[in-house]
């Protein structure tokens, strides 16, 4: 991913900033210009809203054939998480063995290194999921 393309979304990637529809109250992440339910009535009424970062795993996989830039991580776990705000997010789950992953498990986000532009280039950071131990 090129630097400007990444930079535009730093607030979402670092802080999990989504939006709330001013008409129906539904929450979206990443931010949308219009709510798919309220459509034009929601235009210019979408307000920023930071997600709690907590959620539950609704499906998962372990990737053995990664994209080239993820090769050093192989194998790694991907999950779709339903956040507390009833919005779903795709991410990499870390700090857990694949055998211990299950649907319904509680997870939290953590800011991690996602990759780098090149060995001397800028480093990309963003959220990953970790299990909640309580």
């Amino acid at each position: 991913m090129t630097m400007p393309r990444y930079w535009r979304e730093i607030r979402q990637r670092y802080k999990g900033v989504g939006v709330e529809c001013g008409k129906c109250g539904r929450i979206y992440f990443p931010p949308r210009e219009v709510c798919p339910h309220c459509r034009r009535k929601s235009y210019e009424k979408m307000e920023e809203r930071e997600l709690s970062g907590r959620g539950k795993v609704i499906t998962y996989t372990q990737v053995h054939e990664p994209l080239p830039e993820m090769k050093p991580m192989k194998p790694y776990i991907m999950v779709i998480v339903e956040m507390e705000e009833d919005v779903r997010v795709t991410g990499n789950l870390v700090n857990v063995d694949y055998e211990d992953v299950e649907i319904g498990m509680d997870v939290d986000v953590e800011l991690r290194r996602l990759g780098e532009e090149s060995p001397e280039g800028i480093i990309y950071y963003g959220y990953k999921f970790i299990p909640v131990n309580d």
């Binding site: 991913m1 393309r5 979304e9 990443p30 609704i58 499906t59 998962y60 996989t61 990737v63 054939e65 990664p66 994209l67 993820m70 991580m73 790694y76 991907m78 999950v79 779709i80 997010v89 795709t90 991410g91 990499n92 649907i103 996602l114 963003g126 959220y127 990953k128």
Partner: peptide
């Protein structure tokens, strides 16, 4: 979606794998 799926490590295979896991469950 390049910005909200693949950038976090999701391959095309992995997205279908997560559909498969969900369908199994």
């Amino acid at each position: 979606d390049q910005e909200w799926e693949t950038v976090f490590g999701a391959t095309f295979d992995s997205l279908y794998a997560m559909m498969a896991r969900y369908h199994m469950e």
